[in-house]
Design a binder for these strands. Structure first.
Lengths: 148, 148
DNA sequence: TTATGTGCAAACTCTTTGCATTACC
DNA sequence: GGTAATGCAAAGAGTTTGCACATAA
């Protein structure tokens, strides 16, 4: 089952309150854009989306809000080679990514065995694993066909 | 057994020749810096190292050479979250990385099972895997002790 | 000789920061 | 009313590009 936007909004309110900070509609709007997107968005893309709701928002606010939201764990970022950072809403489920080198499509996946194996590898090196990022690059189904 | 620098140098000469390009000492010097380093270096760090050998080299040359060397497969880059791209000599063996969030140490590792598992996952999604990058973030042995 | 590679500086892109103003508590 | 957050513009950091000159083939 998928969470409603209000649940994320409430979580944001909680965080803001617990830190003695002030609530702002801008942060909420940015969160909403990420909620409504099923893709990973760059700061610039997020900025353009939010402007549709709130034309007077500034790019700096987007950057500041994204750092804030990421620090608070509401949002995750993934960084592709040269293309820079992209953001997605943290929907509570960890996953990794396959990235098509031809069309840029991103396939998210989660594999239990993969998670366990990483823990095992970390342990072998006496490394305390906190998080990880796995990006698999190649060709998606459509682009494989296209190639032939 | 570990390859001598001349082997990398010869490979560079081969590539340059086969493409009808011209050999330059700058590219060789940059390759040498990477050969002598056991760490991942940023373009800036590489620039500073090369300047010790060749004080008149320009930063732009370093960037151009790194792109070239990476395209030709002599060098690999890995991109950490915000810290940008770092480069290492491609010593022929694929590996992944564990990055200590406390001291920044990078542990390289290779795990056969992990490679196989990724192939399996890719196949399940009809994805043609070409390459991948796995970064595991956490605490290295020393920093785990320090924490207690 | 001729085209590639280089060094320098300027241009560009992406991100952060300072500051006056706005808006939440 | 006091302080955090915003919007704007300017500053920074990192990287790329244009151009004249140097250099390998």
């Amino acid at each position: 089952m998928t969470k409603s936007f209000d649940e994320y909004k409430d979580r944001l309110k909680e965080i803001v309150k617990s830190k003695g900070l002030k609530y702002s509609t801008q942060r909420e709007e940015i969160l909403k854009v990420l909620y409504n997107s099923n893709k990973h968005l760059s700061p610039e893309e997020i900025y353009n989306e939010v402007k549709k709701i709130n034309p007077s928002i500034g790019l700096a606010t987007v950057y500041r809000a994204l750092s804030f939201l990421e620090n608070e764990g509401l949002v995750n970022s993934i960084s592709f080679g040269a293309e820079g950072k992209k953001y997605e809403l943290n929907r509570g489920s960890h996953h990794d990514h396959m990235i098509c080198l031809n069309c840029g499509k991103i396939i998210e996946f989660y594999d239990e065995e993969l998670e366990r194996l990483q823990e095992k590898i970390a342990k072998k090196h006496r490394f305390k694993l906190i998080t990880h990022e796995l990006n698999m690059y190649g060709l998606c189904e459509d682009c494989t066909k296209e190639e032939s």
